[in-house]
């Protein structure tokens, strides 16, 4: 499903360049649950952004579902974001002007889902995350952890074929983290959704079936 060949990423810094990812090769098969681990600043988020088609690698080839990503046009990428990819940001990134309900509803709107189905799906998710009471609040009225939950809910509501989650439980209590991980494991096993998560926690990594260690931009 995902194949990285010799991927590098660097930013220009002064007269030189700052290498963040170096010659990364990686294959993730459909139905896998992969955890990416590594110290702060090692390039985990950058790698996940590249995987999620949010950022371009500087070098190398990336095949998503067998297709070369750098050859895709904007329309194709938009299509993938609508249907195939769900992304949980490290910094949550909710739309400040929309309520919890509307934030979760937005990806379904982009999929042109009929209103009745949309309503029942959003209601389901809200229920599952115990957020029904908060559905009309705006992001700045939520705690950090609650925002993170909304971010996760938004990523899975459209039932994508792959979820990229950047430290999805970083701000949650261990009990809540546990239920999120159980949810991920269930989505992975029952619906065959591929999951790639970044985590600092060995416990969370234990829910997956593979760990990729990253250090100074290289995969160990």
């Amino acid at each position: 499903m995902i194949q990285l060949r010799n991927i590098s990423k660097h930013y220009p810094v002064g007269f030189g360049k700052h290498e963040i990812l170096k010659n990364v090769d990686m294959v993730i098969h459909e139905g896998e649950f992969v955890s990416i681990m590594g110290p702060s600043g090692s390039g985990k988020s950058t790698l996940l952004h590249i995987l999620g088609l949010l950022e371009e690698p500087s070098e190398g080839e990336y095949l998503f579902q067998g297709e070369l990503v750098h050859k895709m046009n904007d329309k194709k990428r938009t299509q993938l974001h609508r249907g195939a990819i769900g992304f949980v940001f490290q910094a949550y990134h909710l739309i400040d002007e929309l309520t919890v309900y509307e934030n979760i509803e937005t990806p379904l709107l982009y999929k042109n889902m009929p209103s009745s189905e949309r309503k029942s799906r959003v209601a389901d998710i809200l229920d599952r995350f115990n957020m029904v009471a908060k559905k009309d609040l705006f992001p700045n009225q939520l705690s950090g952890g609650q925002q993170q939950l909304v971010g996760i809910a938004r990523a899975i509501v459209a039932e994508p074929s792959v979820i990229f989650a950047d430290e999805p439980t970083g701000n949650l209590h261990s009990d809540q983290a546990k239920s999120i991980m159980e949810l991920f494991a269930e989505l992975n096993k029952k619906d065959g959704i591929t999951i790639v998560q970044v985590t600092h926690s060995d416990v969370n990594a234990g829910y997956g079936n593979r760990v990729v260690e990253i250090m100074d931009g290289r995969i160990k």
Binding site: G52, L54, D74, K75, T78, Q79, L80, H81, R82, G83, F87, F89, H93, L94, I95, D96, E97, T106, P107, Y110, K111, R154
Partner: peptide, 16 residues
Amino acid sequence: AKEIGIRKSLGSSKSS
């Protein structure tokens, strides 16, 4: 810009 970034990551096309 932030809103647009998020929308794009959720599948909003340029035209929308």
